[in-house]
Design a protein around this nucleic acid. Structure first.
Lengths: 221, 221
DNA sequence: TTAATTTTTTAGATTTGTCTAAAAATAATT
DNA sequence: AATTATTTTTAGACAAATCTAAAAAATTAA
């Protein structure tokens, strides 16, 4: 039942997915607000998505994505996050710039494109904001990713990505023995300047600034 | 007067551009055929593009892209060809697969995206089919590109791109001293198997197969 | 240069997604 | 529980892009 979805339908499905993350079921008003349209338009679209079996819709009561709808949403989100990763890590976009562009790229639906992009990027688990990227089967990495700066003290973690905004940073990190896959713990945090004392596994300790600690993403182990 | 163009308007503009390449002015029927729509729809759209000053349209007579329209077309074509280049050279698509996907990607209009993609790809002059890629000012490279196989005998040419479909090929070529920028001539062509005898400038001569000669793009000098 | 043919345009209908205003259902309040 | 307020849906209209069928213009042929 792989219907071709219009850009508009895709936007509704994606928004319902996101709103469902926070609360059990979604309201017409909330969705209208999220998607910048009017409640009446939402109702219209819900009826349409209902006939396509993408939502389970009880008029005046509630609605949720169906299993089908959920699958469609994960596909859209996969595309969005892969493109965000591409924009930041290959094209040198900054975090703030990517969302709008990825919003357009996500509607290019070629499965072959998405899977090849995924492979090209090295099957990343998280987008630049730290949100997980569903794999080609729609499975979401259950690990948690966070900036190294937010890692609790004395918690072993593994580096999963580094925002390569400047080559300065990259060379500093590689000289310090910090790359993707490096395991480390935060041993102390100086209140004076928010710098962190880092213990790299089987290696020496170093201090890094708050800025650097925020450019490094880690998974707690 | 940088109006935002709908996908549909973009498709019309692009098609008019391509049809104009072959004949002075374009007919309603030809455009309808090219765009897979009905003549009546073409007329409707022409009236719309006229009000936006993108075409010069004389009902029952003829129409052409205006200066504005031409600029818009070159922008669309730039995006299309850059994405084709990306798909083939980074994502390992084959020539035949790229068109359909690029057809969708070309409608993502972010100028920042396009210019960063261009830089990322190294400002390529030609797409994988050998068609020139307009630069960010809409200027088209006037050089000619062709497969090495089609280069006339004893004509000096420079290699501009290599289809990196297999790593076999790439390592063979680099071992033979053939990379982007290498200057060479074709000295002979064997009718038996269509293989070519190549003289690399300031270096030795080698023979390469028809297949390889078709994977190498050159500019005659 | 008329008549026949082809091309192009107009007129009116259709589909998709949206909107406003009014009606219906649900939720909150006294 | 009845009234008020809020939320949601319906009804009908609208814009964009398309279509069919008929009319108008241009072209070709007799």
């Amino acid at each position: 039942m792989l219907t071709n979805l219009s850009v508009s339908e895709q936007n509704y499905i994606k928004s319902i997915y996101h709103l469902q993350q926070n609360s059990e079921s979604v309201t017409t008003n909330a969705l209208a607000g999220h998607i910048k349209t009017k409640p009446a338009s939402v109702t219209d679209m819900l009826k349409k998505l209902q006939t396509k079996n993408l939502v389970n819709y009880n008029p005046y009561k509630s609605f949720r994505l169906s299993r089908e709808g959920n699958k469609a949403a994960l596909n859209i989100i996969r595309r969005h996050r892969l493109w965000e990763f591409f924009l930041v890590n290959q094209l040198q976009f900054t975090w703030e710039e990517v969302h709008e562009v990825a919003e357009q790229l996500e509607h290019v639906t070629s499965k072959k494109l998405v899977d090849k992009l995924d492979a090209f990027l090295g099957y990343p688990g998280f987008d630049p904001h730290g949100d997980p990227i569903p794999n080609s089967n729609g499975k979401i990495n259950q690990q948690v990713q966070m900036p190294l700066f937010n890692l609790p003290l004395n918690t072993l973690a593994i580096i999963t990505s580094v925002q390569n905004q400047s080559s300065d940073l990259l060379s500093f990190l590689s000289n310090s023995g910090i790359t993707i896959g490096t395991k480390l713990e935060v041993k102390q945090k100086l209140n004076f300047d928010n710098s962190l004392g880092i213990k790299i596994k089987n290696k020496s300790s170093i201090f890094i600034s708050e800025q650097i600690a925020n450019a490094i993403q880690v998974n707690p182990l």
